[in-house]
Each structure stands twice: as C-alpha cells, then as structure tokens.
Write a protein that binds this DNA or RNA. Structure first.
Lengths: 220, 220
DNA sequence: AACGTTAACTTATCAACGGTCAGTTAACGT
DNA sequence: ACGTTAACTGACCGTTGATAAGTTAACGTT
C-alpha cells in the first residue's frame, strides 16, 4: 500500500523534517487548554501528550520541562498586553486618559488571563531576570522567557513619565508614582483572581474605583 | 529494664493516650518550617514526617491531607493579624487615624512575615473556606479552618462602617471602600515581598504614599 | 496483676507523577 | 540506494500523596 502525500503539517502523524516547530505550537495549544481547564498542578505531561497525540517524552524534544511550557505560554499571552498598551500609546490620548486606559487594559488583561498573571507576578518562582531591571523597556532583554511581565510594567512607568513631561503635576517622583500606581492595579487584580469566589461588591465599580484611586492618588 | 517515667509530652517517642494534639502541634511546627524553607510543592509528607520523627502515614491521623496542614497554618498566621488589629480597635483613636493605624499594622505585618504572608495570601492554594463569606465577623464560622482570613477582612469593613457612623463621608459603600482599601494595601505588600530585589524607590515613602492613597481614595 | 479496649503508630503497598534512556522510525540530501 | 539525523516511542526510574491492614502500648476496669 502506498501512502498518499501527507499534508505539509500533519496533525496526528509524525512531522516532516524541519517542521518540529508546528508540533511545538500544538503542544502549547494543548497545554494552554489544559492549564485553563484544570490548572497547572492538575495538568500532567501525559495529558498534554495525549491531547496532542504523541508520547509523553516527545514533549521534552521541545521543552526542557513542564514549567518551560507554562513560561512560553506566559510570554505568548503577555505579548498581547504589551501590544495593547502600545496601541493605546499610539492613540495619542491626553496623559490622564492614556494612563487610565492603560490601567484599564492592564486590569482587563489580568482578569482575563488569571493563571498567566499569577505565574508571572505572584508565583514566587519569578525568574531572576525579570527582577532587578531598569524601568525602561529597552533595558530589558525580551528574548529571555519571563521578561514580558517586566516590559508591561515598564510601559506603565513610561506612560507616567510622558504625562509628567506633558505638564501633569505628580505628587511623587515619577518612579515612585508609577510604583504606587502599579501596586494599586496589581492589588486589585491579585485580590480578584486569587479569591474569585469571595463576595466582592460590583466588579466594575471596584475597577473604576481603583482607577480613580490611583490616578487621584498620584496626580495633584 | 524498667523505663523511667516519660515526660508528659515526649518529643521523639510515642505519645501517651489523649495527647495526640501535641503531636499535631509538632507536625504543624515542622510543616511551617518546611513550607517557609522550600515552599508548598517542594515540601513532602515524608519530609514533614521525618522532621517530626514519625512515619508518613502518621500525619493522616491528624490531618485529612496535605492541604489541611497548610489550612491550619493559615489560621495560625491570621490569628496574629487579627489580634493586632483588635488591639488598635481598642485604642479608641479617631476614625481616620484608626484606619491608618490598621493599614500600617497590616503592611508592617506583611513585611515582617513575608513568607507567612505569601503562604496565606499569595500561594494560590487558598482554601475554599476563606472565600464566599459574609462581611461581618459574627457571620463567619471561626471554627472552620481558613475562616480567619475573612475575619481579618471583616475587621477592616467594621472599621470603615464605624468611621462612617462617626460622620466620615465615604466615596463608596463601606463594603466597596473596604475592598478597595485592602486591595491597595495588599498590592503594596505583595509587590514588595514578591520582588524584593526590584529597585523600588524608598520603601517608607511607598508605605506612606499608599496609606495616603487609600485613605484619600475612599474618604471624601 | 491480668484483661480488653483502643489511641497511636508502622510496614507494605498503591497508582500516578515528572523526567531519562536507549533505542526505532522515517524524511531527506546526496 | 545509502547514510544521516530529526522526530518519535516503549520501558523504566525515583518520588509523590495517599490507603490498607496490621502492630504496639497506654489506660480503665476488674
């Protein structure tokens, strides 16, 4: 029996030479589904492999270990946040509105990607390279996995410095103000995603309230 | 050979009848050390048992599973916070100062017990019992493991309601205001202890700044 | 001081986990 | 047709949380 010509990238079968990266993507997609469905701990290497349709050791051809898979997913999702914040940057809003939009985007992202957010900002296993960095995006090595969180933070800092340059009076030095602002946003996101079943009052009011609190809190 | 009378509570040996609770305490102490040293995931039932000096299954005489051990430790930690907040309550300060003192105590507690704070508030293993509770202390069943977290939060809510009753105008309903306030404080503590090597600006300024931000943010 | 009860504890064992090893298969250049 | 090697597999390792079944020793009762 002669096989028909396989598609360039088969889903179930063996990959053709040089197309391992498509398998890598399949693994990421399956892992993302499972992480979101069952959580990190409950998602096993074998379950991911089963869903992809390969053996468990095959995953180790593309990722060094389980955490590396999650890390890659984090960077992937954080990329969207950075994109969104950049696009807000480009809209040319007034400083106050731009900061507010950025903050809202940040919160929205955290609430829509709680696990990725938790892993990069609350896991306590934060890789060392996202710490001890400057506050400018270009000072951060974006190629290192896990660096995207720091980039997102740096974007916020730049927003504030731009606002200051545009004449907005800040109650604190820009760095301090940015840190306070981020802490407020982070506190909201962290609280909501770590206690999703707590009887919080209206979520939208909390978001607007926090945005008011941080903008009023740092701008004179 | 006749044994000498054993001490009421032996450390290494078998417990006398009715003194199982001392073994329970030993397990909690050992587990706390290990959780703080190596984290939740890396702390195994066997390591805890080894440190206590008993076999692994012995732990299941006192705790239903691994998470139950952590649950008990959470309550222990929250207990200190509640005590401190209550003592501030009793000082009879003016509403604004009382709230500020509570907030400062909360931050101080978090920064002085970073690992315990992380364990109870950020570990991601937050047990279900501390969620889905009312906002009044008396509505919370303190005997349920994990309920102490809700009690600590309820204290804050009451603080705010007392302030409101004393004539202080709030920008939001007391519940919402309390949540925003706690989120700000938590954001500060979480950021500082989870990224201790980040080049934060002056810590004291951040603390005072956050206290200003939350008090001004929720009080008219 | 012997007996029965049972709290306290152990040994043996389980299935499932993350991960490694030593191959095997198949796609491709030559 | 052949050799190389990317892509992949089956068998296996040590460890994990947890359970089952049996053992030991403390104590009240007689």
């Amino acid at each position: 029996m002669e096989e028909i010509l396989p598609a360039l990238s088969t889903l179930g079968g063996r990959k053709r030479r040089g197309e391992g990266h498509t398998r890598r993507d399949e693994i990421l997609a399956a892992a993302k589904e499972l992480f979101l469905e069952e959580g990190y701990a409950a998602t096993t290497i074998r379950k991911i492999a089963d869903r992809v349709g390969v053996s468990a050791p095959a995953l180790y051809l593309y990722f060094s270990d389980k955490e590396a898979i999650m890390l890659a997913l984090c960077d992937q999702t954080f990329g969207f946040l950075i994109e969104e914040m950049s696009s807000i940057d480009r809209e040319g809003l007034k400083p106050r509105e731009s900061l507010r939009a950025c903050g809202r985007a940040y919160i929205k992202f955290g609430l829509e990607h709680p696990r990725e957010y938790w892993l990069t900002f609350m896991s306590g296993n934060t890789p060392k390279h996202i710490k001890d960095r400057g506050h400018k995006p270009e000072e951060i090595d974006a190629t290192k996995p896990g660096a995207t969180g720091a980039i997102a933070f740096a974007k916020l800092v730049e927003q504030l410095k731009a606002a200051e340059a545009a004449g907005v009076k800040l109650k604190y030095p820009a760095d301090t103000a940015a840190e306070l602002c981020w802490m407020g946003l982070h506190g909201l996101v962290a609280a909501l995603i770590n206690n999703p079943e707590f009887p919080w009052t209206k979520r939208d009011e909390l978001i607007d309230g926090m945005l008011d609190m941080v903008t009023e809190g740092i701008m004179a």
